[in-house]
Amino acid sequence: MKKLLYISLILLIATNSVVGQKKNRQNIKLLKTAFITNAITLKPVEAEKFWPVYNQYTNKIQQLKVDLENSKTQEFKNSGGIDSLSESDAQKVLDQYLLYEKEVYETKISMIKDLSTIISAHQIIKLQKAERDFNKRMLQEYGRRKRMGQ
């Protein structure tokens, strides 16, 4: 009985942790949406067309980055760590990295082309700046919270 209670408690804690992370991601996404909307002064009509396109491309870019990290991690595990990689395996990892980077680059070009039919070039430049500024603020906030022990 105690064992079952202990296992249930561990599952409850693990579930809360996962749910909390998901909620934090959603909150960050909402903050980013508000930040970008404000930064590029989207009108409601523009926003209606902008966000589905923007989200589609940013999700694809994020998935490419996750795939790259998973691929590298798996390669490192298979070889026993970075220091154990043979030169040919290291070259494979680099080649894979370049392919992913090229695909991210091409995805960003497609996104800009598609967005240029919805918003102005001026707004696209503001979008790029807003993304950098948002990421910078997020890192600053993370550092501040880490220093404060949160």
Rank of each mutant, 00 (worst) to 15 (best):
A39Y: 01
G20N: 11
S79A: 10
L115A: 01
K108H: 03
N16W: 03
Y97F: 13
N78P: 05
E69G: 08
K3F: 14
M148N: 08
Q62E: 01
M111V: 00
I40M: 01
E48P: 02
N59I: 07
D114C: 01
F134D: 04
K60H: 11
S86R: 02
Q128L: 06
K43C: 13
L42H: 02
S8G: 12
M148S: 11
S71E: 11
T15R: 11
T33F: 00
V45Q: 10
V104F: 11
L5D: 13
L30T: 15
Q26E: 14
N55F: 04
Q128D: 06
I118K: 00
K22Q: 07
M148C: 01
D67T: 14
G143M: 15
D95G: 05
V93K: 05
D133W: 07
E131V: 09
Q62R: 12
M138I: 07
T73G: 04
K102T: 10
D133S: 04
G20T: 03
K129V: 15
N27P: 00
F50G: 08
S110H: 02
I13K: 06
A14G: 10
L99N: 14
F50I: 06
I125R: 10
K32P: 02
L4K: 07
A34M: 03
Q21W: 14
S84L: 10
S8P: 00
I7C: 09
V45C: 09
L85P: 04
D95T: 15
N70I: 06
T117P: 00
K136D: 00
I118Q: 00
I36S: 01
K32W: 02
M111Y: 05
A34C: 01
R144Q: 13
I118R: 00
K113A: 02
A47N: 07
A39I: 04
M111H: 03
Q123N: 02
R145T: 09
Q150D: 09
S84M: 13
S17M: 09
Q56K: 15
L12S: 14
V18G: 14
D89I: 11
V45W: 07
K2Y: 12
E101K: 08
I61M: 05
Y100D: 11
N70H: 12
S17W: 03
F76Y: 14
I124Y: 00
E131T: 06
R132Y: 06
E48F: 14
N16V: 08
K2H: 13
V66I: 15
